[in-house]
Structure formats: structure tokens, C-alpha cells
Amino acid sequence: EGYREILDFFVGGQESAYGWREILQQLYQRGVKEVLLGVFDGLPGLEEAFRTVYPKADVQRCVVHKVRNTLSRVRKKDQFEVAEDLKLIYRAPNKEMALQMFQQFESKWSSKYPREVQSWANELDVLLTFMDDPSSIRSVIYTTNAIERTI
């Protein structure tokens, strides 16, 4: 219906697949049966638990967190240029163009930053899930930032 609602609040605990699965199963048992998309920032075990409880839902990795993590591993002098090249990927008008922009990014930076580029290659499918949705809502679902501001 176009609004956010906090469904529960949990304090502490271990960030493991088992711990997250318990939380998600509680939500499921309370009536959260149909989830279309989970947006995550890469917390250990969360995606695995989500896929177990909601196997039909899509998963989107937070692009903003991924960019930040990548830039923290890039030399200062390259950070702006790498950031601009990454924007060409996640701001592309469609998935095909995003994949082309990633190929250019990969060609340009893989010799200098092989781990960082490989990390994007390994996670590209969950980083670009949002590209399957209408462009009007993409900016809302490609990051967890809106969720984090809720609390």
C-alpha cells in the first residue's frame, strides 16, 4: 500500500543463519507469508535464512553498501573514478546496459583491483535484481538505506 511498517524489533543475538531463520520464521508464523523481495546489506547468514523461509522471493544486495565496501579497498587516487564507473552500472537504464557497463568496469579495473572486481562479478546477480523492476521504484529497492533510517 506504499508505506513502511515495523513488524518487530529484536535486540542483540548472533548474526548467524540459524538466528536469522528463527526471527524470519516468527514473522512468517505471525502472518508475513508472502514476501516478494528481501533487500540486504550482506549480514552473515541473513540471505541464507531468508531464502529458506521465503524461497520464492527475490534477493537484492544493497548497492550502496557494496560501493562503500569496494571504495574502502581502492587507493584514494582511484576512488572517484571507480565510483563513477560503478555508477554507470547501477544507474544504467536496463539490465543489459548494466551488464555491458560491468564488462567495461571489469576490463578497466581487474588488473589493478582483481579482488574487488571479482567480488562484484560473484555478486552481480543479487546486486542487479532491482533492474527487473520498474524504473520508478528502483531507487527505493537497490539499497537498505531507507530501511536503516526507519529506526
Rank of each mutant, 00 (worst) to 15 (best):
E1M: 15
E1R: 10
E1A: 14
Y3W: 10
E5Y: 08
I6Y: 00
F9I: 15
F9C: 14
F10W: 10
G12H: 00
G13R: 00
Q14I: 09
Y18R: 12
Y18A: 15
G19V: 02
R21D: 09
I23R: 13
I23Q: 03
I23M: 06
I23H: 01
Q25S: 12
Q26V: 10
L27Q: 09
Y28M: 06
Y28W: 06
Y28T: 08
Y28F: 12
Q29R: 09
R30E: 14
R30H: 09
R30W: 00
G31T: 01
E34S: 11
E34M: 07
E34R: 08
V35A: 05
L37S: 01
G38Q: 01
V39P: 01
D41F: 03
L43N: 03
L43E: 10
P44T: 15
G45W: 02
E47K: 11
E48Q: 12
V53D: 05
Y54V: 07
P55L: 04
P55D: 04
A57D: 03
D58G: 09
D58Q: 11
Q60E: 02
Q60H: 06
R61D: 04
R61Q: 10
V63I: 15
V63C: 06
V63M: 11
H65P: 02
K66R: 11
V67Y: 01
V67N: 00
R68E: 07
R68Y: 04
R68W: 03
N69H: 06
N69C: 09
N69W: 03
N69I: 10
T70I: 08
L71P: 03
L71Y: 02
S72N: 15
S72E: 15
V74E: 04
V74L: 05
R75D: 14
K77Y: 02
K77A: 14
D78S: 11
D78L: 01
F80A: 13
F80C: 05
F80I: 12
A83C: 09
E84V: 14
D85A: 11
K87P: 02
L88F: 08
L88P: 02
I89F: 03
I89T: 10
Y90M: 08
Y90A: 09
R91T: 12
P93D: 13
E96C: 09
E96V: 14
M97E: 15
M97H: 10
M97C: 10
A98V: 04
F102S: 04
Q104A: 09
Q104N: 12
E106H: 11
W109A: 00
W109R: 07
S111D: 12
K112Q: 15
K112I: 14
P114H: 05
P114Y: 12
R115E: 11
R115W: 12
V117M: 03
V117D: 01
N122G: 08
L124V: 06
V126M: 05
V126K: 04
L128Q: 03
L128R: 03
T129M: 06
D132S: 13
S139P: 05
S139H: 12
V140R: 13
V140A: 15
T144F: 04
E148T: 07
R149A: 15
R149T: 14
T150E: 11
